[in-house]
Computed example of a mutant assay.
Amino acid sequence: MRALAIAATGMNAQQLNVEVIANNIANINTTSFKRARAEFTDLLYQTERPAGTPNRGNQTPIPEGAQLGLGVRTAAIRNLHIQGALTSTGNSLDLAINGRGWFQIEGANGDTFYTRAGAFNKNADGQLVTMDGNIVQPQITIPNDTTEVIINETGEVFARISNQTDLQSLGQLALANFANDAGLEALGSNLYRETPASGTPTVGIPGDPSFGTVQQGYLELSNVDPVKEITELITAQRSYEMNSKVIQAVDEMYSTISRG
């Protein structure tokens, strides 16, 4: 019976759905994490009787045919790039983007990656880096004798140097925008990479039209809603159980046939 194969596709789909939900819940406290959602589509249909074919009597087309769906398949796992809440940290090198945009990060091999996790720090040379030591682009170098770092909403970075009254400009942070954020490739460590689906980045200054602003001393929280995730987890579990019930029912039908 085809019901076995159809129910098996349903169980596989709900297993993947649970795995996506589990990853969301696991990253509930990950800075700037974007929750994902599994998207499914129905499989091909097997036509038993095409709609619109003439009947045998007066050749009048039948109003509807007979098509049997063959199950479900995974279409995509979509990252939902909805901004999370901003939380104050009091750390002058923690930066959050309020609105659209991505910080640009230089990888170890010179590639450019993108992140919204602005938990930055200084390396041994005073350069602004991520927690993994990747350099923020454009490069910002903070002098050793700096007593205070000030970053305004438009991304301008200033340093208060000891024994100096005027602020020293250290550079200008820039943000990147993409036509399709969902098309970015997630690499882990809060980093994303450009793909043909995301389009090429448009780089601009924070606060410009279509670009967000930079908030110093804040971090963007994960956008995972624990109540929603638990609700979807229960729904996925029930769907998995219903598909398993179909397999049990088909097995009992086979048993009836074999006994007969």
Results as ranks from 00 to 15, higher is better:
68 L>F: 15
68 L>H: 14
70 L>F: 04
71 G>T: 11
71 G>K: 11
72 V>S: 10
73 R>S: 11
74 T>Q: 13
74 T>K: 09
74 T>V: 11
75 A>G: 02
75 A>F: 02
76 A>M: 09
76 A>I: 02
77 I>Y: 09
78 R>V: 05
79 N>H: 13
79 N>S: 12
79 N>R: 15
81 H>D: 06
82 I>P: 00
82 I>E: 08
82 I>G: 03
83 Q>H: 07
83 Q>N: 12
83 Q>S: 13
84 G>D: 04
84 G>T: 08
85 A>T: 07
85 A>G: 07
86 L>K: 01
87 T>K: 06
88 S>C: 00
88 S>M: 03
89 T>Y: 00
90 G>P: 04
91 N>A: 04
91 N>K: 10
92 S>K: 03
92 S>H: 00
92 S>Y: 00
93 L>S: 00
93 L>W: 04
94 D>Q: 02
94 D>C: 04
96 A>P: 06
96 A>S: 03
98 N>R: 02
98 N>W: 00
98 N>M: 01
98 N>S: 09
99 G>C: 03
99 G>V: 02
99 G>H: 10
99 G>A: 02
100 R>Q: 10
101 G>I: 00
101 G>M: 00
102 W>R: 01
102 W>G: 03
104 Q>V: 04
104 Q>P: 02
104 Q>M: 14
104 Q>Y: 02
104 Q>G: 01
105 I>W: 10
105 I>R: 13
106 E>N: 10
106 E>I: 07
106 E>R: 15
107 G>Y: 02
107 G>L: 09
107 G>A: 13
107 G>C: 11
108 A>H: 10
108 A>N: 14
109 N>M: 14
111 D>H: 14
112 T>F: 06
112 T>Y: 06
113 F>S: 14
113 F>H: 15
113 F>N: 15
113 F>T: 14
114 Y>V: 13
114 Y>T: 12
114 Y>C: 10
114 Y>R: 10
114 Y>D: 10
115 T>N: 12
116 R>L: 13
116 R>F: 13
116 R>N: 13
117 A>C: 12
117 A>S: 14
118 G>F: 04
118 G>P: 09
118 G>K: 05
120 F>P: 03
120 F>I: 11
120 F>E: 04
121 N>H: 02
121 N>A: 13
121 N>L: 08
122 K>C: 01
123 N>E: 05
123 N>H: 09
123 N>C: 04
124 A>M: 05
124 A>L: 06
124 A>T: 10
124 A>Y: 01
124 A>E: 11
124 A>Q: 10
125 D>I: 02
125 D>A: 12
125 D>G: 05
126 G>D: 04
127 Q>A: 12
127 Q>M: 08
128 L>P: 04
128 L>F: 09
128 L>Y: 07
128 L>I: 10
129 V>L: 06
130 T>Q: 09
131 M>K: 14
131 M>V: 13
131 M>P: 05
132 D>G: 15
132 D>I: 13
133 G>P: 08
133 G>Q: 12
134 N>D: 07
135 I>L: 11
135 I>M: 09
135 I>F: 05
136 V>A: 06
